[in-house]
Design a protein around this nucleic acid. Structure first.
Length: 271
DNA sequence: AGAGGTACCTGGCAGC
DNA sequence: TGCTGCCAGGTACCTC
């Protein structure tokens, strides 16, 4: 479910409601997410005031004076505010309650997500310390991609989905940005010119920005924290459109696999 | 070091 | 209706 635009949409949806609020309690119904939720989380977080709600890559960071909650939504995770009397669903694994009576609730059927509590700088945490640049900053550009890709034989799609290259480019936006840039998804990363990387970096920024503006991409089940779907699916050019005409040239969109992931492209427009 | 595969988990869907 | 197999938006970890 969530790629960077979905996580950013979630961050924007919850931040106004919990920033500055004190946590009055935490209920954990199922500790076994990707990593077990630590026993110390409830005690550490309860009573703390949320100083900020930030995002790094697809991680949400709830910072307090005492520590930081790191949230990852995995493949199927979803945060929303529950009504006070609303019974927990089967996959509602945890709630955070706040002084303003808001209840932040996580639903995650596949449990690939995470909830961690750490007392040190979250950006130095092993999960975050080796992450590449944020795509929507000036730190990320064609030159950075070009330099990092020299002598690399890996397929360009796998390369841009590697979080050490750049964070936040998941399976949907990898296909979409390569289509927009006219680059074949299986081309070796080391065999792409600087000029083409400049275009690719611009298109990665553009596709992510447009998707955030549309509230993310709803394929099956993504809803933002207020229960609204995202509308970017209507703007997808190739993703999950195998057999449909390429929007640029009309040739049927082809589907292949790259790194065990579905990959969509146009054989004429992408070289 | 780099490339590729596997694993984690549930649910939905196509096909029989 | 119910079974089986496959697929799904992520990413750490394993092997070669």
């Amino acid at each position: 479910m969530p790629e960077l635009p979905e996580v950013e949409t979630t961050r924007g949806g919850i931040a106004p409601h919990i920033t500055g609020q004190r946590v009055t309690g935490v209920t954990i119904r199922n500790r076994s997410l990707r990593w077990p939720i630590s026993r110390g989380l409830e005690n550490g977080l309860t009573g703390q005031r949320i100083e900020s709600v930030e995002r790094r890559a697809k991680y949400l960071l709830l910072r307090t004076a005492n520590g930081c909650a790191i949230i990852h939504l995995g493949m199927s995770g979803h945060l929303r505010f529950a009504r006070p009397d609303e019974p927990a669903d089967k996959h509602d694994h945890w709630d955070m309650r706040f002084a303003n009576k808001k209840i932040l609730r996580l639903n995650d059927p596949r449990r690939f997500g995470a909830l961690l509590w750490i007392r040190t700088d979250p950006l130095r945490h092993p999960l975050l310390k080796n992450l590449g640049p944020e795509p929507l900053t000036t730190e990320f550009d064609g030159k950075a991609l070009f330099q990092r890709s020299r002598n690399r034989r890996v397929a360009i799609k796998s390369f841009i989905m590697d979080s050490r290259t750049v964070v936040g480019v998941g399976n949907i936006y990898a296909s979409e940005s390569l289509f927009r840039a006219g680059i074949h998804p299986l081309r070796a990363a080391g065999r792409i010119s600087l000029a083409r990387y400049e275009i690719l970096a611009d298109q990665i920024k553009a596709v992510l920005t447009e998707s955030i503006e549309q509230g993310g991409t709803t394929l099956r089940d993504f809803l933002d924290s207020a229960g609204r779907p995202g509308y970017f699916a209507q703007r997808l050019n190739v993703y999950q459109r195998a057999g449909e005409p390429c929007p640029r040239c009309g040739k049927p969109v082809r589907e292949t696999r790259s790194g065990q992931r579905s990959t969509f492209y146009c054989t004429r427009c992408q070289r």
